[in-house]
Design a protein around this nucleic acid. Sequence first.
DNA 1: TCCTGATCTGGGAGCGCTCACACTACGCAG
DNA 2: CTGCGTAGTGTGAGCGCTCCCAGATCAGGA
Lengths: 319, 319
Amino acid sequence: MSRGTVSRVLNGGRYVSTAALAAVQRAVVETGYVANSSARSLATSRSGAVAFVLTEPQERLFEDPNFHVLLRSCTQALAERDLVLMLLLAGSAAEHQRVLRFLRGRHVDGMLLVSTHLGDPLVAEASRSGLPVVAAGRPLGHEHDVRSVAADDRGGARAMVEHLVARGRRRVTTVAGPQDTSGGVERLAGYFDVVGRRARAVDVVAADGWTHAAGERAMARLLEQVPDLDAVFVASDLMASGALAALRRAGREVPGDVAVGGFDDSRVAVQVDPPLTTVRQPLVEVGRRMVDLLLAQIAGEAEVEPAVLPTELVVRAST
Amino acid sequence: MSRGTVSRVLNGGRYVSTAALAAVQRAVVETGYVANSSARSLATSRSGAVAFVLTEPQERLFEDPNFHVLLRSCTQALAERDLVLMLLLAGSAAEHQRVLRFLRGRHVDGMLLVSTHLGDPLVAEASRSGLPVVAAGRPLGHEHDVRSVAADDRGGARAMVEHLVARGRRRVTTVAGPQDTSGGVERLAGYFDVVGRRARAVDVVAADGWTHAAGERAMARLLEQVPDLDAVFVASDLMASGALAALRRAGREVPGDVAVGGFDDSRVAVQVDPPLTTVRQPLVEVGRRMVDLLLAQIAGEAEVEPAVLPTELVVRAST
DNA sequence: TCCTGATCTGGGAGCGCTCACACTACGCAG
DNA sequence: CTGCGTAGTGTGAGCGCTCCCAGATCAGGA
């Protein structure tokens, strides 16, 4: 039995007699043989691993459940294709350098880029390196050279604001997300789509982060600027939980005095009181599609159309 | 300039002249050379990667912030030593098989085992395989053959129950965690340490999961069994947030009617209303120590003493 | 002067695979 | 009977490193 035959069996078994195939398979089971991955990588120049790169400072990562849903969904989708996920953090400058060195070392076959900000140098470097890359969310400033998968942020925001208006609310305000991220920009655009000419500058406060605390701060400021507001669309559930805290502290009833709408339909939406009306983002699907796009790119397929997945309004007690 | 010299420079530079060293370093910078990791792995039979294995069904992973703190801390600690973390899920039987095959293929130099249950076959396999392994939390049934790092669950629980008693509460009950996990068992033991002879069977309800929903269910049952309870120690913050919901639904004021103590000091502790008195688990430190122990084991050091890290009572408004 | 040991360099061997190609055997059409 | 295509097998080469040994150079002591 030659090495070549064994290798053929292990890689799909074309041009192998049934006798040889059975013999090899039996031997594999008996000896518990597992191919050495480094040797295989060296010979094929494919590592079987994909990097999942988080460009985000500590606080958000600790807090935001969205990342974890995405992380899990990507891990699973990769595992189904016998690929493994390597988790890389690129929050600080030092980490950033390490990630770049790592990618250049061709440890991985591709890269999933999560939560990028406008001007993030990693996006530019990634697109320049020639390594297959797929971003979660529209990569601001690199829409044309980096493939991406995103939820329909703008459409979802529009649906939410329309819902608030349909509930009879007169003064619909918004706590927007950070404006250097695609989610922040798009969801605010959706708000303006509906509010249109009636929009006033004071009705909008952009939070300085996607966190609970940032949502609380932004809501407090919004209450100062617009004391008679009766509805607020908050650009994420986590920020909305902070907004609820600010409203409670100000003595406003939800939804009696103020209707609150969130975004994401993450688990915090049902853990707060009252449960949040929100916009469901199909994050599990986003993860799967990211993996699909990445594998297509690794295989050399040339599709560049970014994927945009539909969102869905989920009505609960807060509006 | 020979390959040998270059290799020597790249690996610490013993027995290299300063001239050669400078020349190689310059060349590396100029050409942007990065060593190929598969080739290096093949030659050294070290992969530079460590597996982070989650043995847990979907729901908990989505919910519990503890995992993410641990995940991040391990990722960071590994990165500082130029190692990379591979995330593996072993929730279902199929995933389980894949993980085993993966480990046997020597893709990784070691394994961090998180959230194991009593009777988990992965623990047995891991300890048998000879691959360096460190578990988070005492690995029930394998305390002597698998190294571990854990917080002082029992001591922390004791401090919390003592605190409730010191607050003048007469009927201190507990929502315990699942009894097939070390956290569940140890924290309940800490409760009994304080309550001692006065303990009654009806005062204890073990939840069937570590989730918000499980905490809510368990609390509802506890209220049925002990209508006059005036304090409850809940074995995790996430479950405590569920317990708060159940108490609110039953019309009980917190902390007026019922004092509620949690465990973990995760971010949910400060996001619920009222903020939870809880027990801080040094999870970041746990992650670092796990990595330390694992690297020591990989290096062949023989220490087997499991690490137990101190906890700390954090008093907030719920008690 | 010669020997010894320390420092440094070069190159062969080998890590465990896959790939490409040469080769055999065999069936079937011309 | 010859030629040709196809299924199946064996083998050399090579992926890009590290390890190890042989050899060169040089300083310092006998």
